[in-house]
Design a protein around this nucleic acid. Structure first.
Length: 989
RNA sequence: AGGCCCGUAGCUCAGUUGGUUAGAGCACACGCUUGAUAAGCGUGGGGUCGACAGUUCAAAUCUGUCCGGGCCUACCA
């Protein structure tokens, strides 16, 4: 076999997929091109074009959870915004109007800290800066960051109304937040109660959890006797039986109001028999004394008390103890001779009590501990909690006998050290014979982040929203919220995933009342007046209207800058009312965003928010405790319903090992860096292919892998662009059953992929859609359809039906690929689309093309599945022949295919199977074939023997052919190629 | 410490109500091609399904314990 004699170079007559000037190069240059594209979208006003295009469509509201206006964005922000962008873009392209209004959360501590620091550097203490000046500085600080963050978000390819973003500190927002709170007041759910908070006596302020750090501290420990008042079998016990508690904070004893025990712990009655001898001091314990203790704690307790021998008399059930005497209830040094402490100390059951430390009984001072507070309010509500300590950490008159003593030294050399309070209490206990033992303990104890001074738990008056008070059709806020949780889709409806539903439900079921007041400066005030005579909150529409109007005009500052009388008007006297100066929990701010961003159903803030078919929230899973939570409660309180219909959550970004990213470990990855080095679309693709509900791992390997996926997709688009060069409507053939099987099958696949992509997008499972697209590109297009059809595309005459059919179907493919990919790869989809249609404005103004039902073609699908299985046997055989150096390229082969099954053989004969296998010829025969033929275990009825193709190699298509069949004008190419070249020559004259 | 959750090939993910030798894409190795060419095609290696125990004729799939990781609470009298 010899090649045709060297003759004409046909290369120029081959329709290679090059585009003039290579407008869509393989090397994308994303880091450089993406910013240009962002600018382009801004210039054409894409956001406004989108709104205009979709004005008549059904609305979907995607409401942005506001990031905090502080610092550069990090990878977590990037994941969050990109996922949001996927939702917004897919909804828009699925035929909705999905308006996205980004926002920022501006009030709160982090900014307050920064600004405070700035003032300190300038030599001014916060307390010396007027509230309004301080707030102005906070506002300026937030204002500085918003445009910076906005530009970073736009760089990520996020589309939205970036010129009209919302903030929680705009005057409108501040007025709206205040009005929302007044709305809650009208439900009757707002009350003033108290709660122990972390308090710094040195700084005279409460501290947030984030401002607290734990340090080692040595504290006194005391074992205190509480004599039992009554026990229904007291007669059997005799008198003088004591419950023993243990504590590291003696100063909380005046605040003791209860003792907690755990019903699942075993308790016993013990009698002391003998005291240790030869001690350098005389122990307080006496032989014959009786104590109730957890059995597991008896040994340690008696060791501390120096009782060398003791006996256990009987079991004790603490629930049968009515109450105990307070150790100070007969203390002579109190003004009332102990009468102030003459309340019974009840025993309360609580799970927080353990028997691995202490005595099995927990001293409970509801004003000075979280557990203490919880167990107390569970039994007695807010009643009866004393305020024993003032804001400087001094005992008040509610701690009779100790008034004025400091818990922590406030000044001088001993600043931050224990004050006289502990010692005074211990002395009093000794005096009253209530101290069993004492010691010292080194333990971790809360300290102020800034002053490093120890903190105390201190009961302070605060404002709450009640969860268990009925307010709406006899229901409580908790009940309404739980009902709404059932209505909302947390994923349990779209994918059956119940984890988010369970999580939010659990949180709402368990949470205590909402503490909404903060003793801070940078926020929206609780805009209320409290009657000095009866403690009720003034509720008057005219007053509320004045407050709202003033804030709308001048922001929340007016609350501090305007005399109370101006709000109260003529009807009320300022001196009769206390103007509350606390600010609202910032979660109340963001919980109210729905009210001023989306608006009420009756009063939407924009046309794109009218009667939405759905309102969607999407945030990280930490927002179950945050924004999802506060928005739910706020909206249920004011409107009786959740502000959203669907909630989507995502996990957190981790490093490549699945560990949390942190600056100190140095394993962070900045989105800005990915944008510079790889292009942000690589990150978008990575996020789209991940199970974002779980944590997202991020590392070099994943980014590289995502880059590979990108290249494959880009190259597929690039091939389509080249293959479709010059394709016009006139070339199009009807997309019906007269198409070749290959094209019928490809349409069938487009139909299937369309279904998968829509299903993925509808349920926010981007990876389902993306993997359908990627697999289609790789397996169906690249490895099969394109590989097979390259011959027809390159070498057929333009008039060839086969080539026209191929191009018609590729046109539909390109149309869909660009649309399907647009939400995930907005830059590249745009680039591809505009390369093909330079006169078009943007791919993003399109919707997903409808895919005709008629394209579903089960026959083509099943037929092609069979053919590809048979093809796999041929490719396997070719591989063996290649390895044995029988052939190199597949076109050198002419396989003999033995097919036992008549139906399968008929299928193979019905089409050009050589074309499918990309061989120059093929022989299909009946029967089992020779024993040494190539077979695959899963296709036992097909056997293949590879033989070399006879004939000569076509100088144009490289196929081997019988030169006897050649067109005499073109002896070195096949007749098919001759026809194409003839047409090509004719066109050029 | 408690609540919710995650743990399948090097990587990202599929694995229907428990049922034949656990799949895909990418990566890797080898080969082919040199007309998608800083591309394309083919073939191949690679997993005790986090560990252990249990239920079952049968478990990646159900139960329990443990290990590792994440988010959120709490952090102790």
């Amino acid at each position: 076999m010899a090649d045709a004699p060297a003759g004409r170079d046909y290369r120029e007559t081959v329709f290679l997929p090059d585009l003039p000037g290579d407008p869509f190069p393989l090397r994308a240059g994303l880091p450089k091109k993406e910013p240009e594209r962002v600018k382009y979208w801004a210039e054409i006003g894409l956001y406004h074009l989108l709104r205009k295009e979709a004005a008549a469509r059904p609305k979907v509201v995607f409401h942005d959870g506001p990031p905090y206006a502080n610092g550069a964005i990090h990878i977590g922000h990037a994941e969050n915004k990109i996922l949001k962008d996927f939702v917004v873009r897919t909804k828009q392209m699925a035929g909705f109007d999905c308006d996205y209004v980004p926002g920022w959360d501006c009030h709160g501590l982090p900014i307050e800290w920064k600004v405070e620091e700035d003032f300190r550097k300038a030599g001014r203490k916060k307390s010396e800066v007027p509230a309004v000046e301080f707030r102005r500085a906070c506002r300026e600080y937030a204002d500085k960051w918003i445009p910076l963050q906005r530009d970073e978000f736009r760089r990520l390819g996020i589309e939205g109304d970036w010129d009209n973003y919302y903030t929680t500190m705009s005057f409108d927002a501040e007025a709206a937040i205040a009005r929302e709170f007044l709305r809650v007041v009208r439900t009757g759910l707002v009350y003033r109660g108290s709660k122990p908070v972390m308090w710094s006596p040195v700084e005279r302020t409460s501290l947030a959890e984030a401002e607290v750090e734990y340090q080692e501290k040595t504290s006194p420990t005391i074992w205190v006797k509480f004599e039992i008042n009554g026990y229904d079998i007291t007669q059997n016990l005799g008198g003088g039986v004591n419950v023993v508690i243990w504590t590291t904070t003696p100063w909380t004893i005046p605040g003791n109001r209860a003792i907690a025990y755990n019903p699942s712990i075993k308790y016993g009655l013990y009698q002391v028999e003998e005291i240790e001898k030869d001690l350098p001091f005389e122990p307080w314990v006496r032989a014959g004394e009786k104590f109730v203790l957890a059995d597991a704690r008896a040994a340690d307790t008696f060791a501390a008390a120096k009782a060398s021998r003791y006996t256990r008399l009987q079991d004790i059930d603490p629930s049968k103890i009515d109450s105990c005497r307070h150790p100070f209830d007969e203390w002579q040094k109190t003004p009332d001779k102990g009468g102030e402490y003459a309340f019974g100390v009840p025993l309360l059951a609580g799970d927080h009590v353990t028997d691995d430390a202490g005595t099995g009984f927990v001293h409970t001072a509801p004003g000075h501990g979280a557990d203490d507070f919880i167990i107390w309010t569970k039994h007695f509500g807010q009643e009866g909690i004393p305020f024993t300590v003032d804001e400087e950490g001094r005992f008040t008159k509610e701690a009779p006998g100790f008034e004025g003593l400091e818990i922590i030294q406030l000044e001088g050399k001993g600043l931050g050290k224990d004050g006289p309070a502990n010692k005074a209490v211990i002395d009093a206990l000794i005096e009253e014979h209530a101290l069993l033992a004492r010691g010292q303990l080194k333990h971790s104890y809360p300290h102020s982040w800034r002053s490093k001074a120890p903190l105390i738990f201190r009961n302070t008056p605060q404002w709450f929203i009640a969860l268990d008070k009925s307010y709406r059709d006899g229901k409580t806020l908790r009940q309404v919220a739980l009902d709404e949780i059932d209505r909302v889709d947390w994923g349990q409806k779209r994918t059956g995933e119940t984890k988010d539903y369970n999580r939010i439900r659990g949180m709402i079921e368990d949470r205590p009342d909402w503490l909404v007041s903060r003793q801070r400066a940078w926020g929206v005030p609780l805009p209320i007046f409290v009657s000095k005579s009866d403690g009720s909150i003034l509720q008057d529409d005219e007053v509320d209207a004045r407050i709202f109007a003033a804030m709308k005009a001048g922001g929340a500052d007016v609350w501090w800058a305007t005399p109370a009388q101006d709000f109260l008007g003529a009807k009320y006297k300022a001196e009769d009312y206390e103007k509350v100066e606390d600010i609202l929990d910032v979660w109340f701010d963001s919980g109210s965003t729905h009210a001023f961003v989306i608006g009420n159903p009756e009063a939407p803030t924009r046309p794109s928010f009218v009667n939405p078919v759905s309102t969607i929230y999407l945030e990280g899973s930490d927002q179950h405790r945050g924004w999802f939570h506060s928005s739910l409660l706020e909206s249920c309180a004011t409107r009786g319903k959740a502000p959203y219909d669907e909630v989507i959550t995502h996990g957190f970004t981790m490093d490549e090992k699945g560990m949390k990213m942190s600056k100190s470990i140095g394993n962070t990855i900045e989105p800005q860096k990915i944008a510079e080095q790889n292009g942000i679309e690589i990150l978008r693709l990575l996020i789209a292919s991940a199970e974002y509900g779980d944590d997202l791992r991020l590392g070099k390997i994943m980014i590289d892998q995502s880059g590979e996926m990108y290249r494959k997709l880009r190259n597929t688009l690039r091939f389509c662009l080249g293959a479709l060069r010059g394709f016009e409507d006139g070339e199009r053939v009807p997309l019906d059953r007269d198409l070749p099987l290959m094209e019928r099958w490809l349409l069938h696949r487009l139909h299937e992929v369309d279904r998968d992509v829509r299903r993925g997008y509808d349920t926010y499972q981007w990876r389902v859609a993306l993997s359908a697209i990627v697999e289609f590109c790789n397996v169906d297009l690249s490895a099969f359809y394109v590989d097979v059809r390259k011959d027809a595309l390159y070498c057929d005459a333009p008039s060839s039906f086969r080539r026209r059919a191929c191009r018609s179907v590729l046109d539909e493919t390109f149309s869909r690929l660009t649309a399907w990919l647009a939400p995930i790869m907005p830059f590249t989809a745009e680039e591809a689309w505009l390369t093909r249609f330079p006169e078009s404005v943007s791919v993003h103004l399109r919707t997903f093309p409808e895919t005709p039902v008629a394209w579903e073609d089960d026959f083509a699908g099943e037929e092609m599945a069979k053919l590809r299985e048979a093809r796999a046997v041929v490719t396997g055989a070719l591989e063996v022949a290649r390895r044995e150096k029988v052939i190199g390229a597949a076109l050198e082969a002419c396989p003999r295919v033995f097919v036992a099954d008549d139906a399968l053989r008929a299928s193979l004969q019905a089409i050009d199977f050589a074309e499918l296998c990309i061989t120059s010829g093929i022989v299909i025969e009946a029967g089992e074939g020779p024993a040494d033929a190539f077979r695959l275990p899963e296709m036992s009825g097909v056997a293949v023997v590879i033989e070399k193709t006879p004939g000569v190699k076509c100088a144009r298509s490289w196929k081997y052919f019988d030169p006897a069949t050649a067109d005499p004008r073109y002896p070195d190419i096949t007749p098919r190629d001759a026809e194409a070249v003839a047409a090509w020559d004719a066109a050029r004259g």
